[in-house]
């Protein structure tokens, strides 16, 4: 952080000055401290969930926590840059398979670490191949990525002669499992928050607005994009590794299901991708609604998910966050109008 500060000082250009101003305005302000405190309280309350309920509510809580982590890490990269990644399932599956493949050989925590490294390396390869060039190549590449990894894994299993389904038997109670995921999601949040107010986050927002401008500002766009993509994908791989014991049976078609990528994108969009808390606002109602829908119409889930997606893209393009901010802006507009009217009246009396 301090390094970044001095860096800004040594470049007295107008742009660097603007950057510096922005950073100064982002120095831990009162509101931010308050927000952090609220976050801590919410997380602490959420952590109490296993003490009050088990079974259904807890499993719903687990889903919400996983998706909150996944959607936030998706937004970390795809939100500011507008590079839509459709490959969450590929990284998630890699994490899951690392655990499934090594669960009898290595201790579980080591496997999580390996999963993270594997996810990061794979993301680095893809990022270096596709993100150096601007344009839609990245989106296209990510579209079939889960399917590609699935084919390769199935082929590998076929060649090595192992069965396609693997069992992951790690002894964990549901509560411990829940807390593990909560810690993961909190880490995702903190990292996203920290990146959002760092130079890197600022660079990404410029890239998202106009990549040519970003290049002309002296931002190494490729490095910024690849770095963020690696971070975001590593989180997805860790999520996969954490979830593997809960599924206990892992199979290529399950682990690399494109459904997951789709759900993550839809939840993030529903919430809104330009605020840190946006995905969370989307994840909670969507997970609950989805639980209901998949129980009621188990054979029409794909169709309904597609319909929900289109509704969001067409009718709430900026997500719930956009709606909320619109509303509060309008309300404060009315408030200001009323106040000026009242003041004008008061002035008349005197």
């Amino acid at each position: 952080m301090s390094n970044a500060d001095t860096h800004g000082d040594t470049k007295p250009t107008a742009f660097a000055q603007a950057m510096l101003d922005l950073r100064e305005s982002a120095v831990l302000s009162g509101t931010e401290k308050r927000n952090l405190a609220i976050c801590a309280i919410v997380a602490a309350l959420w952590a109490l969930l296993p003490l009050f309920s088990t079974g259904y509510i807890l499993s719903l809580g687990i889903s919400i926590t996983i998706f909150a982590g996944l959607a936030t890490s998706w937004t970390l990269f795809s939100g500011p840059t507008n590079y839509i990644s459709l490959a969450t399932a590929a990284f998630f599956g890699i994490g899951m398979y690392t655990v499934a493949g090594g669960v009898n050989l290595l201790p579980y925590p080591v496997l999580i670490l390996i999963a993270a490294v594997a996810g990061a390396l794979f993301a680095a390869l893809i990022g270096l191949a596709t993100l150096r060039i601007s344009g839609v190549y990245f989106v296209i590449f990510s579209l079939g990525l889960a399917e590609l990894v699935r084919q390769v894994v199935s082929w590998g299993q076929h060649v090595m002669g192992t069965s396609s389904g693997l069992y992951v038997l790690v002894d964990r109670s549901d509560s411990v499992f829940f807390w593990q995921l909560l810690v993961f999601t909190l880490v995702v949040f903190l990292v996203s928050w920290w990146i959002g107010r760092s130079r890197l986050g600022f660079a990404l927002r410029i890239i998202g607005n106009d990549e040519v401008v970003a290049v002309h500002c002296g931002i190494n766009t490729a490095r910024a994009k690849v770095t963020l993509f690696i971070i975001s994908s590593t989180f997805a791989a860790i999520a996969g590794a954490l979830v593997a014991p809960r599924w206990s049976y892992v199979e290529p078609t399950l682990a690399f299901s494109p459904f997951l990528s789709f759900q993550v994108v839809i939840m993030s969009l529903l919430g809104g991708v330009h605020r840190l808390w946006g995905p969370l606002v989307g994840v909670i109602p969507f997970t609950i609604m989805w639980e209901f829908i998949s129980a009621k119409f188990p054979s029409q889930t794909t169709l309904l998910l597609g319909v929900a997606f289109l509704l969001i893209v067409y009718f709430i393009p900026h997500g719930f966050v956009g709606l909320i901010e619109d509303f509060s802006r309008r309300r404060s507009g009315i408030w200001a109008a009323l106040r000026s009217k009242w003041q004008a009246k008061g002035g008349g009396h005197e």
């Binding site: 994108v265 889930t301 794909t302 169709l303 998910l305 597609g306 319909v307 997606f309 289109l310 893209v313």
Partner: peptide, 12 residues
């Protein structure tokens, strides 16, 4: 985004 959603509607 729209055509990605559409693809799921088609599959469904």
């Amino acid at each position: 985004l729209a055509t990605f959603g559409l693809s799921f509607i088609f599959v469904g």
